[in-house]
Amino acid sequence: MTNGFAQTDARLPAYARLRDTLSGRIARGEWTPDQPIPSEARLAGEFDVSVGTVRKAVDGLVGEGLLERRQGSGTYVRAPSFNATLFRFFPMRESDGSPLSIPQSRMLDRTLTRATGEAAQALGEIEVIKITRLRSLSDQPVLFEEIYISRDRFDGFQDLPESAFGPLLYPLYFERFGLLVKRATDEVSFGRASDAVAGQLQVPQGDPLAIIRRTAFDIEDRPVEWRIASGSAKGFRYVSEIK
Rank of each mutant, 00 (worst) to 15 (best):
R192M: 09
F154S: 01
D155T: 13
Q200D: 09
R214E: 02
S194H: 04
D155W: 10
L201C: 07
I228L: 11
R176G: 00
L160D: 02
R183P: 08
A184Q: 11
R176N: 04
G206M: 05
L201Y: 05
G199M: 11
K182S: 12
S230E: 15
G206S: 13
L180T: 05
F174R: 08
V197H: 09
L209A: 01
Y173L: 08
G199A: 14
A198P: 02
P204A: 08
A196D: 12
A164E: 13
V181K: 03
E187Y: 08
F157L: 10
L180Y: 09
Y173F: 12
L160F: 08
L169E: 07
G166C: 06
Y170N: 02
F165T: 07
R192P: 01
Y173H: 08
I219M: 10
P167E: 14
P171Q: 07
A229V: 09
Q202P: 06
A198Q: 04
V197L: 10
S163Q: 11
E175H: 13
D155H: 13
K182R: 15
E225Q: 03
W226N: 00
S230D: 12
D195N: 12
P167G: 13
S163N: 09
G191D: 06
R222D: 12
I228Q: 14
D207G: 09
G206F: 03
A229K: 06
L168E: 13
D186I: 08
G156W: 07
R153M: 10
A216D: 03
R176P: 01
Y173E: 03
W226A: 01
S163C: 06
P161G: 09
A210F: 00
L172R: 00
L179E: 06
E187K: 15
L201D: 03
I228C: 14
R153V: 07
R213C: 00
D152H: 13
A198V: 02
L169D: 05
F157E: 00
I211P: 00
A196V: 12
A229S: 12
G166E: 11
D152P: 05
Q158F: 07
T185L: 10
D221R: 13
I211F: 01
D186H: 13
P167F: 10
G206K: 03
D195L: 12
W226T: 00
I212T: 00
F174S: 04
Y170L: 06
S194V: 04
S230A: 15
D159M: 07
W226S: 02
D159G: 05
A216G: 00
P161H: 10
